[in-house]
Structure formats: C-alpha cells, structure tokens
Amino acid sequence: MRDQKLWTWHLAAGVIILFLLGLHMAIMHLDALLGIFNPAGGHPIDWANVVARGQSLAFTTTYILLLGTALFHGLYGLRNILFELDPAPPLKKALSWVLILVGVGLFIFGTWAAWVGYQVASQA
C-alpha cells in the first residue's frame, strides 16, 4: 500500500476520531460540566455507569470503531516518524509488519473486551 492512500485514510481516520474521541472525552472528563451518559450519577468510571453504557449496542459499536481508527491513525503516524529516521529498507519492511501485527492484535483484543463487556452488561 502506498502513502497516497494510507495518508488519505490517516486524514479520514483523524476526522472520525475527532468526533468519537470528542464524545468519549466529554463523557469521561467533562462530567462535572456536561454530565452526559452517566445515568447512575457519581463518577463516569463507576461500574454502574460502565454497565449502563455497555448495554448499548451503539456505544459498543462506536467503541470498536474508535479503537480501529485510532489504532490505524496512531500506528501510521508512528510509522511516519520511524521512517523519517531513515532505517535501512529491510528494517522498514520489518517495522511495517511489526506495526501491522501490533495493530491487528490490539484491535482483536480490544474488540473482544468490548464485545464481552457488552454481553456482561446486557446480562446485568
């Protein structure tokens, strides 16, 4: 895959993250000001709030979407920085594969956690 396409997606991912992470940050950190999506009150990370958000399929889906786009955006950015350090071509190839594997691995792990969390919350 060439940089023309990868960078276009990098930009698009950035825009998606802006909205999804914006919402995530507003829920988690501007709770005293906005207090959205914390039905149980108290702190946003209280288990009751986590379960309440986790019961929603829409929330679970956006978590997984945010996970994927943020991993791509971040790891492609890291690859850009590493490649600018001018590693030898075989090392570049190895780095690309390591970053792909790390990205896919974290995506599968995070998706598993979000999905199981959704089922745990649904049963609660």
Binding site: G77, A113, A114
Partner: peptide, 29 residues
C-alpha cells in the same frame, strides 16, 4: 508529534487497563 506519540503510548496502556471490564465488576474496580 510529541503529543501524538504520548497519546499513542497512553492509548495502548488504556486498552489493556479498560479491557478488565470484560472480566467483571471486581476486576474493573
């Protein structure tokens, strides 16, 4: 660049820390 690298590091740690919710309430807490 610096904030991007910092956020990527935090994000990876964050994935591991928050995935404890999959196990249940006690693990999460």
């Amino acid at each position: 660049r610096i904030t991007g690298l910092g956020l990527l590091f935090y994000f990876v740690v964050h994935i591991f820390v928050t995935s404890s919710r999959a196990i249940g309430q006690s693990a999460w807490e």
